[in-house]
Design a protein around this nucleic acid. Structure first.
Lengths: 212, 212
DNA sequence: AATGCTATTGAGTACGTGACCAATAAAGCA
DNA sequence: TGCTTTATTGGTCACGTACTCAATAGCATT
């Protein structure tokens, strides 16, 4: 991919190089797993010496943690764009339809794997753990905002938006827990579960959030 | 724990030694994580040379896989004893009450961690993957049997027992997905979710499966 | 009591990891 | 233009892993 002859140096502004490193680490983490995010692996990918990556990340844990945050942050912005909760849009109902459409598609598989990966690795890596907790709460808050917008617009009925958001995420995370194992065997009974849970939580008739 | 002076050999029957090794590996996997199940670690625990463990398990993957199966199999028998589905017992309703009581308690935390651990590690380790899939289906089938017994006894109403069992497990696995991260923040909204999902799936009035 | 089988030892190889650091060359500034 | 700063190189180091294998010693059988 990125290959330069030996000895050739390319000197970049620290901020730019740092971003490069994090972006590469995020891509590796998303597609191959966070344990593949090593100083050497990232350096190879960038056509650079391992020492350089170590220079920007004296502790490898921080690189892994930032890789995770980078990947999930980007994904969240795809799934639930910030502006979706604001005014002048298709409305919360359409936002959720798109959301459940995406989370049910195969594109989401790598994201499921990443979450599973990060949640387990957090057992041993405190730095990563903090980033994962922050992202978990961020995702939950982002959903809560859509719920709030829907209540305000009179589209949803829900006594506790935070609890509803939490339980919707349980359904999503529960469904994607089998992504590396018996996902095939479960596709049928679990395909609509997250959507159904959401409809129940938001006081919607069954099928309301199904793709149009 | 088990310490012998150097050079002292204890020679055991192969089957017995093998069981010892798997039992130790299962304990380590359950309490410290499957990546701690190494030839060295298990050998240390048994007061034995690493080469011996390597003799019984020429590929370390198989040891990890058997450790997982050993631990989850034992746990399943605690949670849903085989005979619970048979005749002459407190009945399916009581069985499920006990089940949800246990899965909600802190004793279950290590089991949640183990499942998370194994489901992620299955991404890289095909041998473990097969064992995990087998256990996942076994747990699901065991629940399905209780559901079937309950339907037969007229206690439950359920059109598709297998699908119901699958969705109950989604709720349980979803709830326990945060065991290493933001579990504290979610305890309140998710505490009763698995039980509630089960009551819905089985056509029971809310609270029927709550601890008595 | 002697013998054979084999469970067990103890040291070996090869590999991948994170961390460390002096030397070097590229970029910006005087 | 020359000088200073520092991003980058290219190694080394110690550690932990799986795996290999000849030699050894415990047990069971004769």
């Amino acid at each position: 991919m990125t290959s330069r002859g030996p000895g050739k140096r390319v000197r970049k502004a620290p901020a730019e190089r740092r971003n490069e490193i994090v972006a590469t680490a995020a891509r590796i983490g998303l597609t191959e797993g966070l344990e593949c995010v090593t100083l050497r692996r990232v350096a190879d990918e960038l056509g650079v010496q391992p020492g350089l990556v170590g220079h920007y990340f004296p502790a490898a844990d921080h690189l892994v943690a930032e890789a995770f945050t980078g990947a999930t942050m980007a994904e969240l912005d795809t799934l639930l764009p910030e502006e979706a909760a604001g005014p002048g849009h298709d409305g919360p109902l359409h936002t959720f339809r798109a959301f459940f459409g995406l989370t049910s598609s195969a594109e989401f598989d790598n994201v499921s794997r990443l979450w599973l990966n990060a949640r387990h690795l957090s057992r041993y890596r405190p730095v990563l753990r903090e980033h994962v907790v922050a992202q978990e709460l961020l995702w939950c808050r982002r959903i809560e905002r859509i719920v709030l917008a829907g209540i305000e617009a009179g589209a949803f009925t829900c006594a506790d938006p935070w609890a509803a958001a939490t339980r919707i995420l349980v359904a999503i995370d529960g469904t994607s827990a089998y992504i590396n194992t018996s996902a095939e065997h479960r596709r049928v009974p679990t395909a609509d579960m997250a959507r159904t849970v959401a409809e129940t939580e938001l006081g919607l008739p069954p099928g309301t959030l199904a793709p149009s």
